[in-house]
Computed example of a mutant assay.
Amino acid sequence: MKKIPALIGTASLALLLSACSGDDDNKSASGSIDDGERSNEYGSIDHGVKEEDGEIGFSLDGGSVEEAENVPEEEKTAILKTFNQYIDTLNAGQVDEYLTTLSTENYDLDEERAAAEEMLASGELTRTPEDLTIVKYTEEEAQLFSTMKTAMKVKETGQEDARQGRQVTVLTKQDGDWKVKAVHYIGDQE
């Protein structure tokens, strides 16, 4: 029975981060949602976001989180709207709506649909973000920090598993709209 929480946690984390397996150079490497993940002993996952400086705006392993100062109010509103839609639609099991929040330049939407539908067929996902902070901003890309509680409930048994961690969601402008480009997540140690 101890394997079920681990499987649930792995499944929810995989779905939460699944779209990050695609990248600009190789959108369909081998089809696994886990392709390209690098992890360390703390459970962090870096999904290979290719940025000019090669890094996200800050470290996920602690330290202070400071809001970017140069974010125009209308852009902040649009970024938060996209992020909330990204969270809310998957929580509600609205796969088509969830897919509209993802960058088609960075995600294989067919893979994302399959992963989301498979996960939602057997479980109920609830992601609860807090402490939303835009930590890096340019006119074409934004990085949104949040603390994230991810809970998964197995429909068949009612068994639940929850994880807490920190996440940076990278959003990009695509055809004038903000879309989720990648996710960096590190789970808190139990």
Score class of each variant (00 low, 15 high):
46 D>A: 07
114 A>D: 05
161 D>T: 15
135 V>G: 12
142 A>I: 04
166 R>H: 05
165 G>W: 12
149 K>N: 11
80 L>Q: 08
126 T>C: 07
115 A>N: 14
85 Q>N: 14
74 E>V: 06
125 L>Q: 13
104 T>S: 14
119 M>V: 15
33 I>N: 08
155 K>Q: 09
70 N>D: 15
34 D>R: 12
47 H>W: 03
45 I>D: 02
172 T>W: 01
90 L>K: 00
127 R>N: 10
39 S>A: 04
58 F>G: 06
61 D>Y: 09
54 G>N: 09
98 Y>W: 15
168 V>F: 10
155 K>Y: 04
125 L>H: 09
98 Y>T: 13
81 K>Q: 13
167 Q>L: 12
109 L>D: 10
106 N>Y: 12
89 T>S: 15
92 A>K: 14
116 A>C: 10
38 R>Q: 13
39 S>I: 14
40 N>V: 02
46 D>M: 11
96 D>G: 03
175 D>W: 00
126 T>Q: 12
138 T>D: 03
170 V>S: 09
126 T>K: 12
175 D>T: 07
139 E>N: 04
123 G>V: 04
156 E>A: 14
80 L>G: 04
149 K>A: 14
142 A>Y: 03
162 A>L: 12
91 N>A: 06
155 K>A: 08
93 G>Q: 05
142 A>N: 06
38 R>V: 13
148 M>T: 14
64 S>E: 11
83 F>R: 05
106 N>Q: 15
135 V>A: 02
42 Y>Q: 10
136 K>P: 00
43 G>F: 11
99 L>A: 07
57 G>K: 08
149 K>T: 14
60 L>E: 11
76 K>P: 03
88 D>G: 01
168 V>K: 04
105 E>A: 13
107 Y>I: 00
118 E>C: 06
121 A>G: 09
124 E>L: 13
76 K>G: 05
119 M>Y: 04
51 E>V: 07
167 Q>N: 11
106 N>V: 07
161 D>P: 02
98 Y>R: 11
98 Y>P: 06
42 Y>D: 07
112 E>Q: 15
125 L>F: 13
88 D>F: 06
100 T>N: 06
128 T>N: 09
113 R>C: 06
135 V>W: 03
159 Q>M: 14
40 N>Y: 01
172 T>R: 10
173 K>L: 10
69 E>W: 01
94 Q>C: 01
39 S>N: 11
163 R>M: 12
49 V>E: 07
77 T>N: 08
142 A>S: 09
160 E>Y: 01
133 T>Q: 08
34 D>Q: 08
145 F>Q: 07
95 V>G: 00
80 L>V: 08
164 Q>K: 12
86 Y>I: 02
137 Y>K: 07
159 Q>I: 15
152 M>E: 10
118 E>T: 15
123 G>S: 15
163 R>F: 06
145 F>D: 00
154 V>A: 13
114 A>Y: 02
129 P>Y: 11
